[in-house]
Amino acid sequence: MSSIIVDQLNYVYSPGTAYEKHALKDINLVINDGEYIGLIGHTGSGKSTLIQHLNGLIKATAGTIYYNGEDIYDKNYNMKGLRSKVGLVFQYPEHQLFETTVYKDVSFGPKNLGLEQLEIDLRTYEAVKMVGLGDDILDASPFELSGGQKRRVAIAGVLAMKPEVLILDEPTAGLDPKGRDEILEQIAKLHRDSKITIILVSHSMEDVAKYADRLIVMNKGGIVYNGMPHEVFVHYKELEKIGLAAPQVTYVMNELNNMGFSVNPSVTTVEEATEEVVRALSQTYTSRRKIKND
């Protein structure tokens, strides 16, 4: 069963004014339960506009979205319910922390859902644990924490709503490589353990290549590629034209391939590339030895 179907979605900003902009054009998309999607595209390609449609923050100009088979623009549709099922973590989410303690901040969402105190407590503890923070942090002021910790607290606030789909808009922007890896590993773990659907918006081709099952590439408000990382990065020349790129190792593999090495040009991670090069090099060694022996 598929959880999100986007059907002929169009969105026009400020229609009828000088600033009118057709931000989304005829988007058709299916996102299945439990998938890990990487959403890429350069600034202004429509990524952020699209994800804000998915939890009903923006209403489409035309077309519709079905969540678990229900039309979210239906008059009787429970939009508040949708927002708790589709969690959206904005860019620099730590700017939205506002409470005096981590506990209060993370429990703010569940409290607003009108849950019982015990359930609120449970969800708060669980969410904080899910982002890899200890209980001791609950009484601290969010503003005393490091940048990476603040960001996790903000993500925990969304997780405490128990979303079925988690959308993250560049969750690693401004973090150092270690902080970046920690957050991405935590998200991957969440995806594995709780089978939650992940949509990751990122500028890092290396990161989406490593983590996502499927990539959606946007340009000028439309979807230009939709497929496995290997399938998408084969089009690295076209990706460059729309301001994107392939991971560095994809370029290495293509160069080697052009020089006559038998390596798979669609490789995207360092591990895969190492294997490919080792295999290609040992092949040439063997064939040379063969020629020598002959």
Partner: peptide, 20 residues
């Protein structure tokens, strides 16, 4: 020091670790 190297540098490093 919690830093990461570019993919090509890492690939080169992995290959040299394997004896190339």
């Amino acid at each position: 020091y919690c830093l990461a190297v570019p993919q090509v540098t890492e690939l080169a490093y992995e290959l040299s670790k394997k004896g190339f």
